[in-house]
Amino acid sequence: MNMNSIFKSSTDDNSRQADSGNASSKLRMQHMNLYYGSFHAVKDITLQVNTSSITAIIGPSGCGKSSMLRVFNRMNDLIPGASVDGLVEFDGINIYEPGVDVVELRKRIGMVFQKPNPFPMSIYDNVAFGPRRHGIRNRRALDEIVEKSLMQAALWDEVKDKLGQSGLSISGGQQQRLCIARVLAVEPEVILMDEPCSALDPIATLKIEDLMRTLSETYTIVIVTHNMQQAARVSDMTAFLMVDDGHSGVLVEYGPTSEVFTNPRDKRTEDYITGRFG
């Protein structure tokens, strides 16, 4: 396994793996806090994300879902003034430790955004972009990766005859699947999705959801969605976030989706998912 390679220099880390608690836990936060400058945006989050499962993060808008998601692959590093404390682990390794190779981390933990954002280049080049950047130049190898990734993203049949066309020339739903293929091409272990269907029509949405279920056999998926039905449909685990009196996002409830949606433990979750919030 190449678990240690998210470290720039892979020295002393075998011991850390050994004591990394639950073997099936892929991601873990412990007392994680996120600040934008002095604003305490997300407060004291503790949760574990299981391997090969779909975890949904739901909650009212502005409660910190996207912020929390970005903590998992250090996307917040790109935001000036943002800081994170507490423990955030990927395969038992603290990803905020000095020496972590953030580029490698983001390859392992890919991200799909709200608006499909294909690069202004061909469908083929969109998918080959990541592998090329990671040094793969061999045409045959690239062909294989492109085909495999597009297949996995359930897009191959629709685009196999027009791989040379611009990634921007296909429909929104296809563009989003292209973005998923682009993430898959670098063989990640985790896929983070931030409202991946909010710009899509219902049919395209169901296609992506179905794709997510298939992908979850191989990948660990964390999805932020404002659509509760979507969380109920696709996820295994659901985390419900809400802002507290100080406007910080807090984790109100985290549990198996079937339980959260039939018998939530917290009154605030109940009010939110039954639509009686606010």
């Binding site: 509760m228 039905q229 949606f261 039939t262 018998n263 979750t269 109940e270 998912i273 039954t274 639509g275």
Partner: peptide
Amino acid sequence: QQPMAVDLR
């Protein structure tokens, strides 16, 4: 209406 939680129960 996609009832949830206690409504669904």
